[in-house]
Design a protein around this nucleic acid. Structure first.
Lengths: 150, 150
DNA sequence: TGATGTCAGTTCCTTTTTGGAACTATGCTT
DNA sequence: AAGCATAGTTCCAAAAAGGAACTGACATCA
């Protein structure tokens, strides 16, 4: 498999990674979820080089994950916002945060906790099945490859 | 920020991506979750170049996500298995699958469905808070940066 | 008026990473 | 003896990322 073919692969993992599976994209999206919208701000925060950032934003726009809005005419200025498709990536981000918090040691100065906006209590994200309400672990699940009639 | 510094960043997203945030790593782990254990098999399935695969496996072993087991002495042969830390990545993988299935169109020949091993029914993974049982969306959550006393 | 600053990029060049193919080493099978 | 299997390594070319400077349209400051 070649990187450029991931987007049309039968496997959803491959297709997903064709959009978010590179060094910087999820960090860009993290900033979007934190409310960062502008090029300069992202570049300052991420330390990514400008043309790589421009390229990623273009690709995310093409993929329908971000929308590029003009917020001022003269001179023309743009900001990037998550679309619904982008917002739908939140579980991926949260799962990653939960994993990293437990499995990749933080430097001892800072860390981040997710809090319920309602109660202010820390949340503990787990994956459940919407139908049964039961927790999902890799032991409970198999994968079926569906061949559609052609 | 530089790529090599991600691993010690205060942000768990950055730390997580320092382990799994490159082009191929999650595809390698997908195969591991599917029961693939050997170098040749992974290389055949992924089409990744051999030295990149060797490098990723080494890094995943160093990160404690995979364990390299010798399964035969003469000649020495090894296989790679998920550790508990690796298995803990399952929610990230499932969230990605769920997102891609809905948001990155598949070619019309095949797709993959996750099934409950118990009931055989398709599962519909959602993220919930283990404490309250409520569904987690990005509107319900804020992030707190914890400064520990030094 | 000129100098400086902001924003959203682009351009140019260097360094790093990846791709592609061949090669190594050890034993097993025909 | 000639392949085959496994788990890599080595070498070179191509692609991607890093770094720094530059552009263009405006605003602000002195």
């Amino acid at each position: 498999m070649k990187w450029d073919d991931l987007g049309t692969d039968a496997c959803p993992v491959a297709r997903g990674l064709s959009v978010i599976g590179d060094r910087w994209t999820m960090l860009v999206l993290r900033d979007c979820f934190l409310g960062i919208r502008r090029f300069e701000q992202m570049q300052d925060r991420l330390g990514i080089t400008r043309h790589v950032l421009a390229d990623r934003l273009r690709k995310l726009e093409t993929a329908g994950v971000l929308r590029r809005d003009q917020y001022q005419d003269r001179p023309p200025r743009f900001e990037y916002r998550l679309t619904d498709r982008g917002k739908a990536l939140y579980p991926v981000l949260v799962s990653l945060i939960a994993w990293a918090d437990e499995n990749v040691p933080a430097p001892d100065t800072t860390a981040i906790t997710l809090l319920s906006r309602e109660t202010g209590e820390p949340i503990q994200p787990i994956l459940t099945d919407a139908r049964t309400g039961k927790r999902i672990t890799h032991r409970d699940v198999t994968a079926r490859r569906n061949l559609r009639p052609s």
